[in-house]
């Protein structure tokens, strides 16, 4: 019986991947993995679904498109219709460039904003890392607090099998360096 989070630290992404698969096979729950760079295939190994962010992007883009279209149409032919160079008030072909730019702007900034909000990234946020050097060259796997099925020995064996460099409890970083 244990209610602390276990942290396994690896030196390579391959080890992390194989360890992740092994942990999942043994039925333990993975809380999170930490890597210094984006490791492709890790979400799959952890059994996580891909992000739904593209939908947000599409939505933002759509809003941008409609907004730009409306703004240009309204200002040019409703609010202040002026004869400019003999062209019709609603010079739709001329509005395309701005529609496109606003679409990209909204979609792009919307996606970034969504990322920051969903991942709770903001300036000055205090961060507690599960282990040292995970933003440099270490890879960490954090197991969720376990029920009775968890055994420390088994975990140590798993670590050894997958070339882990350390195994410690969360918050125990200083000691196990």
């Amino acid at each position: 019986m244990i209610d602390q989070r276990v942290v396994m630290v690896f030196e390579s992404a391959d080890d992390l991947m194989s360890a992740t698969r092994a942990v999942r096979e043994s039925g333990w729950k993975i809380e999170e993995a930490y890597t210094p760079y984006a490791v492709h295939g890790l979400d799959e190994a952890m059994g996580r679904a891909p992000s739904r962010l593209p939908y947000i992007t599409f939505l933002c883009g759509l809003v941008g498109t409609l907004l730009a279209l409306w703004l240009q149409h309204w200002t040019s032919s409703v609010s202040w219709p002026l004869n400019v160079g003999g062209k019709p008030f609603n010079s739709l072909p001329a509005f395309v460039p701005v529609i496109f730019e606003i679409m990209v702007l909204f979609a792009g900034l919307g996606s970034v904003a969504t990322l920051l909000i969903r991942s709770r990234l903001y300036p000055g946020k205090k961060v507690q890392l599960p282990s040292v050097d995970i933003t440099n060259h270490r890879f960490a796997l954090v197991l969720a607090p376990q029920d009775a099925s968890f055994s420390h020995d088994e975990a140590s064996q798993l670590c050894r099998r997958h070339n882990a460099v350390a195994l410690h409890f969360l918050g125990d970083i200083e000691n196990k360096k």
Partner: peptide
């Protein structure tokens, strides 16, 4: 921004990066 390198963040990050590249 309090970046911690968690897989969840990396995953979204990669998605946004790809989307931005696409845009």
């Amino acid at each position: 921004f309090g970046w911690d390198g968690s897989q969840r963040t990396w995953s979204r990050y990669e998605t946004v990066y790809l989307l931005l590249a696409g845009l």
